[in-house]
């Protein structure tokens, strides 16, 4: 395998894990218009829960579901703090994130919990025997792709239900929700629960992929999530993305969830390229910030042009 292929493989793997997390951030940031910082805590929460459960002998696949549920509980708490205790959105996320830092350390018992010697969803006897040796480097990617696609389809499906419709309405027009005689608070809580469930699931997968839980992996999750969402959604803003032409009869439209997945992969690709190009890790955050800015400015510019044309 050439170096380029394995770099791409690595980027796709990392990107897909973070794509699941980014879909969660998409729900809060784009749909609910709620800047939810609790993800910095729920991502390692998923990792911590998974590491502890796997060591206790729980089936690695089952830990995915448990992490999902526990993430949902954490998200629900953020929602309750915001809705019932009337704490501002940004602050309720910060409160939850801070609380989860200690909680994660309590759950794992320590800051770093290895599961190298345990079976995971990626590394187990089943794959070793069933998958031919040549294909083994690709099992992780295929598995991640399957999980990411399932989660994306589930989210797409959910957004089409009545509850999903209300979720979108809360972000766009709260009055409408009230007019429909629905409690917008409950809708927000549900949205936060789903979002953080996605994030914790990503954390669970991340721990199984890297082979250990480490408290410091949570820091900056929200930045990666926001970057993925912003890159993805701005990139594919135009509908259809490719206009109808001879090649594509109907043109190509990209769903927002797909855009977010691609955004996450692109973000990871940028980081990988930055590191490969000899950029210091200490400069990476600056690169991220610049990338953010460029994409936001470019997409704003387009909006202005459209308005001027009206």
């Amino acid at each position: 395998m050439s170096a380029i292929i394995s770099i791409i493989l690595g980027v796709l793997e990392e990107g897909l894990v973070y794509a699941i997390m980014a879909m969660g951030v998409y729900i809060t940031y784009k749909i609910l218009d709620f800047p939810d910082l609790s993800v910095d805590g729920t991502f390692p929460l998923g990792s911590a829960v998974t590491a502890v459960l796997i060591i206790a002998g729980v089936n690695p696949v089952l830990t995915l579901f448990i992490s999902f549920l526990i993430g949902a509980c954490a998200g629900m708490l953020t929602g309750l703090i915001h809705v019932k205790l009337k704490v501002r959105d940004l602050l309720s996320g910060i409160i939850m994130m801070t609380a989860l830092y200690s909680l994660n350390l309590r759950i794992a018992g320590k800051a770093n919990l290895p599961i190298f010697s345990q079976d995971t969803i990626f590394k187990n006897a089943f794959f070793k025997t069933v998958v031919p040796k040549v294909l083994q480097p690709y099992t992780m990617l295929v598995l991640l792709l399957i999980i990411a696609v399932i989660m994306k389809l589930l989210l797409d499906g959910y957004l089409k239900t009545k509850s999903g419709y209300l979720l979108r309405a809360v972000g766009d027009n709260e009055v409408l929700v009230t007019a429909l005689a629905k409690d917008k608070g409950t809708v927000k809580i549900i949205g936060l629960a789903i979002a953080n469930a996605f994030v914790a699931l990503a954390g669970s997968i991340y721990a199984q992929k890297s082979g250990f839980f480490e408290i410091s992996t949570g820091t900056g999750t929200i930045v990666i999530g926001l970057a993925s969402v912003i890159i993805g959604t701005n990139l594919f803003k135009r509908k259809p993305f490719i206009k109808a032409n001879g090649l594509f009869k109907k043109g190509i439209t990209v769903k927002a969830t797909t855009a977010v997945v691609i955004g996450a992969i692109l973000y990871k690709a940028c980081v990988a390229v930055a590191i490969a190009a000899g950029m210091e890790a200490s400069d990476l955050k600056l690169i991220t910030a610049l990338l953010f800015l460029i994409i936001l400015v470019v997409s704003n510019g387009r909006k202005r042009r459209v308005r001027a044309g009206d």
């Binding site: 820091t219 890790a281 200490s282």
Partner: peptide, 19 residues
Amino acid sequence: ENAQADGAIASQIANNFVA
């Protein structure tokens, strides 16, 4: 490469070395 105490960067660095 220095990860500057960031776990996510550490894993990225390791992946790059392997790639």
